[in-house]
Amino acid sequence: MSGRTIVMTSGKGGVGKTTATANVGTGLALRSNRVVVVDTDIGLRNLDVVMGLENRIVYDLVDVMEERCRIEQALIRDKHAGELYLIAAAQTRDKDCVSAEQLQNLCRRLELDFDYVVIDCPAGIEQGFRNAIAAAREALVVTTPEVSAIRDADRVIGLLHANDVRKARVIINRIKPEMVRQGDMLSSDDVLDMLGIEAVGLVPSDDRVITSTNSGTPVAYDPQSPSGREFVRIAARLDGEHIPMFEPEEERSDSIMDKVRQLMGMNRRASANV
């Protein structure tokens, strides 16, 4: 068996990359895959917190690299999904203490035991980013429909291609459908036109992400969460299932006209979400 190593990257920080990593990993594990998510953001780890595993860390990525422990000792099993594991980043070291070659070797070894190795890449395009993409064969570029995030995503896509990571797809995060309709936000089509790569998910803006991060339970576990449902669909698409892509719909609207439409049975949401 040889698993797939996928790097989650973005260029710009703060677009939801770590949240997407936790949720894509969770979604894949919910489909009975054996999954390990690896936090490579050394010095600024957060994936453990988003997954609610921060109190279980004994050994981290640098301990594995410096052979202070075996890989199995650094694997932290998720509280919810059966076959989801985390390797946490070191918090007290810097990004340069791990080389691209070391990370590549680790991923090749993990691929023997796991269906998916999902790497949470640090923001920026410095050494930490270069290490993370060197280890991956596929990439998911996370962006939001904002000018600065898309510009950085485009730069990252260029670097991925230059480094032979040919299979790169985009996740557009925090889409606000009402703003798109009103002409205040770029649509997913606008973003995809600019970037020129295929989308694997269009994730709506969702307040439940905040509460899920607070509780350390990824939204992918919450069937009521529109973003959680899309992360589950992203996992299915990665797994080869054909699920059509569509612009997210409003989960909730307080406008008078929307309330009138709901009363008249004209609620567009009812038929929109898969």
């Binding site: 898309i150 002409g183 205040d184 600019m194």
Partner: peptide, 10 residues
């Protein structure tokens, strides 16, 4: 519209 302005700038 802000969307069109963003498109052009991007």
């Amino acid at each position: 519209s802000p969307r069109q302005a963003a498109r052009q700038r991007l």
